[in-house]
């Protein structure tokens, strides 16, 4: 992995992963009527990693965060874990593709929006395929899409400000 050649890069991936795990656990403590209707603050760590270090380190951060986060919240190998893994990997893929092909077309906000909507749509499809074999779950699509857009905007905006502050501090 090209970006993980120096101790500095390894330290950064470790730090961004731990921030992601902390956000993942903190957000899981907030009670919600529907378990998968959340803003996805943990994705701040993925977006920042993608912008600072590139695609491969982001995948590392996402995988480590989902596994460690689920271990801490006691959700490892539960249906929720399956959703977190599939949603996390799909959104990481979509963000990596947009980051690679989009060039300067999108800021962290656009990348986060793509990731968040991919996340919710993937989760819904996985629920449809594995857990509820009924078209009926598709009525959730509008709600999930809207929550994905709100979450994606929020997370993207925070990531953008964070990257700006980091850049000001000489971290690029």
């Amino acid at each position: 992995m090209k970006s993980l050649t120096t101790p500095k890069q390894v330290a950064r991936v470790g730090f961004l992963t731990s921030v992601g795990i902390a956000l993942f656990v903190l957000e899981s403590l907030v009670p919600l009527p529907v378990p998968f209707l959340k803003l996805g603050f943990a994705n701040i760590s993925s977006v920042v990693t993608l912008e600072l270090l590139g695609g491969p380190p982001m995948f590392l951060v996402v995988i480590l965060r989902v596994v460690a986060g689920s271990l801490l919240t006691g959700a490892l190998f539960t249906p929720g874990f399956v959703l977190a893994v599939s949603g996390g990997l799909a959104s990481a893929c979509s963000m990596a593709v947009v980051h690679r092909l989009g060039g300067r077309l999108f800021s962290a906000v656009g990348i986060s929006l793509v990731g968040a909507t991919t996340h919710v749509v993937t989760q819904l499809l996985v629920v449809r395929a594995l857990f509820v074999q009924n078209e009926g779950v598709m009525v959730l699509l509008p709600v999930l899409l809207l929550s994905g857009i709100v979450g994606g905007l929020t997370v993207g905006w925070i990531s953008l400000r964070l990257l700006e502050a980091l850049r000001r501090g000489g971290i690029t």
Partner: peptide, 26 residues
């Protein structure tokens, strides 16, 4: 809005349109 791009705005508009479409379909 500092740092955001026109691409972000277009993407947001498209996603909102998709969400609106899914509401209508529902």
């Amino acid at each position: 809005l500092r740092g955001m791009t026109a691409g972000d705005a277009v993407l947001l508009a498209l996603l909102l349109l998709a969400a609106g479409g899914s509401v209508a379909a529902g």
